[in-house]
Design a protein around this nucleic acid. Sequence first.
DNA 1: TATGAATGAGCCTTCATTCAT
DNA 2: GATGAATGAAGGCTCATTCAT
Lengths: 201, 201, 201, 201
Amino acid sequence: MVVRERGRGRARGRRQDVLGHVVEVMIERGFHQTRFKDVAEASGVAISTLQVYFSTREDMLVEALRTSTRAEVDSMRAEVGELTDPWDQLAGLVDRGFATPVPVWRMLMEFWTAAAYDEALRADSHQLQASYRAPFEAVLNAGIESGAFRTRHEVAVITDLIVTTLDGLLYPRVLAQPQPAVQDLRDLLLDQLRVTLGVAR
Amino acid sequence: MVVRERGRGRARGRRQDVLGHVVEVMIERGFHQTRFKDVAEASGVAISTLQVYFSTREDMLVEALRTSTRAEVDSMRAEVGELTDPWDQLAGLVDRGFATPVPVWRMLMEFWTAAAYDEALRADSHQLQASYRAPFEAVLNAGIESGAFRTRHEVAVITDLIVTTLDGLLYPRVLAQPQPAVQDLRDLLLDQLRVTLGVAR
Amino acid sequence: MVVRERGRGRARGRRQDVLGHVVEVMIERGFHQTRFKDVAEASGVAISTLQVYFSTREDMLVEALRTSTRAEVDSMRAEVGELTDPWDQLAGLVDRGFATPVPVWRMLMEFWTAAAYDEALRADSHQLQASYRAPFEAVLNAGIESGAFRTRHEVAVITDLIVTTLDGLLYPRVLAQPQPAVQDLRDLLLDQLRVTLGVAR
Amino acid sequence: MVVRERGRGRARGRRQDVLGHVVEVMIERGFHQTRFKDVAEASGVAISTLQVYFSTREDMLVEALRTSTRAEVDSMRAEVGELTDPWDQLAGLVDRGFATPVPVWRMLMEFWTAAAYDEALRADSHQLQASYRAPFEAVLNAGIESGAFRTRHEVAVITDLIVTTLDGLLYPRVLAQPQPAVQDLRDLLLDQLRVTLGVAR
DNA sequence: TATGAATGAGCCTTCATTCAT
DNA sequence: GATGAATGAAGGCTCATTCAT
């Protein structure tokens, strides 16, 4: 029923479209450098219309970050769930993390740096972290329960290690730093996890 | 050498002082939110004087980031070198990383996010990364040569793992996220490194 | 005549209602500070509907002032006429002026200040003044004809004195100035009028 | 020493000049219609400079009103003092009031209407009223003490009557209303005051 | 008739920068 | 060398108004 693009609810869809453009612009120019003008040009929507949609520039940017980061984590969580073997699932999650495209890293960078100066966004970032960690902890717990994993470390700590390492990829990827070599790093990390979880090679 | 405090030297000293204030302000307000006005107020130096010192706002901020990040890495490298046992040295470096104070993380965050949009700063960041990695690689190589470490992984990759994990602490610390539990994470990381390097508990 | 509440009549009634709200808002915020938005919120009518009613913001405000000031003077004129003794009538008019409530003063203030910058409103203000003066002149003339008043001054000038004094109350009342003391002022004014009109105490 | 128009204190004089232009513009366009742009054009000073001088538009307007109203009252008070006979002094003050030029009335109108919506200005208006009333009360008291005036009314009330009547001239003058006839009104007012004060014709 | 959607015009404000002292 | 004065450029925001339903 895309046909009824005209009528009272038309603005709703356009608003959503714009949010996508906001993220694009933000990735290209950075949070604080993103002007209404930029988004207007990128989206073809008049500045004043943007203000009707989002009230304030800050609100626009924040909403864009909120929705896109949430969507990103949701898509990750959806993507796993299909595998059944605990180790495969874990490795899948890790691989997903290593495969994060640079634009997504940039978006996260904008989100987190903005959060460093914004109380509300910081709270959001905590929620986001919890959402991101959940699948890891779930898989680890499932593996332990099923006997596939055996470890003397706490699930939370193992998750810490994985997630922290993945987060540590952000700047190297965004800044195109020569190190780390992701493939080798990924192999080493999984190697160590096998030892830690008592999984045969 | 207090003598050259007058003449050209005095201005140089004042300039250096100002750079410290620039970093302070930048940590508090963020790179793009740091105005001449803020630095003038923090340092007690008139705006026009700041411009005499640094020409442009961007130049001022970039110089401040460059010098302070370099100083930070230099101080870290100086701090090690005293221990003799390879494992102790490695653990020392790791502990140093875990002990990084939040303000330093914030400074790094500003540096790296700025670098994401600035070619020159990005080059700087590559140099900085090399400087930061060097002591880790040196210790690892020394340990291998002395027979203290035995591993089938490349030194560069092991360094990748350590450094990436440490970098991954940045946002959690800056954003005061509940996870990771640094102490436990540190223990797990060292545990795994012991296995990887064939070091007895 | 509730019947013509539907059709063209209903809109007319709603329009009238809105005019009342316009005056309310104008008294609270001032002529030039009164936005469509304010009136829309106060009246529960959509902005675009207001524009259908009144075309332009200025038109809306002007119409509201015109109708409300006229209504105010009309009500005053209606209120008198009942007393028979000329002096009582005159005193009644004066008392009515002294009893003018602050909101009415504010409305007049908005009307007159707007008129200072609007030719059409200024013409209205002249008409209004004439309407307001008429009862005073009528009473004075009647009193003179009946022999109740004896004076060597012209009726118009006496009216001037009364009306000007009453007008002079506007800002003190609106601004809640400590002076004048209205009761005492009223007594003194009437005292002097007795002398001027040759009326015994 | 007008010569040192250049140097550190140059801005001071320019600022004062601008305030005059602000009043001019305000008289012509009204308080709320006075834009930075208008003042910039009238004074030849750049908008941003105006903001350096006065910070905010509102501040600029308020300061202009404050200083000009004060100056106006001061000049009135200075102008009297020269006469010696109490009645002549009183009549002089009244005549001064009747002679108030329309631009001054407009300025007062702007001041008072602005004060109606601004707490701080309202306080100013109270002060201004006190300053304006003072000479009237002084003359009345002096006349009573010297025996030139004899009255059973309080000085404050007589002052109320005079000042209120004068204030009542504001809108008629600003709006060029046909009434009152100022000369006749002035004569009647003075006639009545003679009676009230027991002064022979 | 009534209203939601969209937009351009205009204004205040912040800020870096130039200039003169 | 250091600083106050002045200004242009640019962005956010408010608001009236037009258009389509």
